[in-house]
Amino acid sequence: MHNFEFVKPSTVADAVQALAAEEAQPLSGGQTLIPSMKARLNAPEVLVSLMGIAEMQGIRHEGDMLEVGAATTHARVATEAAAAFPGLAGLAAQIGDPAVRNRGTLGGSLANNDPSACYPAAALGTGAVIVTNAREIAADDFFLGMFTTALDEDEIITSVRFPIPQKSAYGKFLQPASRFALTGVFVAKYADGVRVAVTGASENGVFRWSEAEAALASDFSAEALSGLSCPADDMIADLHGSAAYRAHLVAVMTRRAVVAAS
């Protein structure tokens, strides 16, 4: 890969300042960024590690809200969020593999917004608030399509606030090579409604399946979904599955997530 200057600030303010440099990029766990740099698809001049910033680490449980520091690894979420928000912990435990989970972070995953990543489904499926150094962004406004988010240049996610649902689960169907989601569905039931977010399936990245949300709002059961199908327009078609297959999986994995959450 191309060489770069490596900096590792210890505060968010310092990180933001370092990112103001020409061709600077943030680095969190690096589980996606480093492979893309090896392939020379990405060549920052300055790489700003966010892994030394204490205020971006850890999990805080407050009433109906779980706030996760953006630089918290998947492995920590998988264990430390298990009591307060098992649906989120369960999703984190299915990302990549153990070694990837020991490095990869929540903030890195959301900022990258890979259309097959797991975490965007949790953020959108809970209506989480993405907290950055500059502002707070509702998940519904954050994901703007494949690898695109509402983040401004040099803006970094510092934490994510998840409203804790009454019931939730993530149903993931593995893409067998990459272990990303061929299709993954996060289902969350709240007092005032149900959210269903789908990753891995759409050309436009993570999306909410509103028909399923409506059906589940009145009856949170797999039966409520019977007969419901997700249109195959805009679905990803590749060597792992056609658009029609992914659309079919959306329904199957939604049902399974509902069963797992019930």
Binding site: P176, A177, S178, L239
Partner: peptide, 16 residues
């Protein structure tokens, strides 16, 4: 080549 890495060429793993 569409299957040019382990991201797309599915190698059998321990759980396969």
């Amino acid at each position: 080549l569409l299957s040019g890495s382990y991201m797309d060429y599915a190698m059998p793993r321990a759980d396969d």
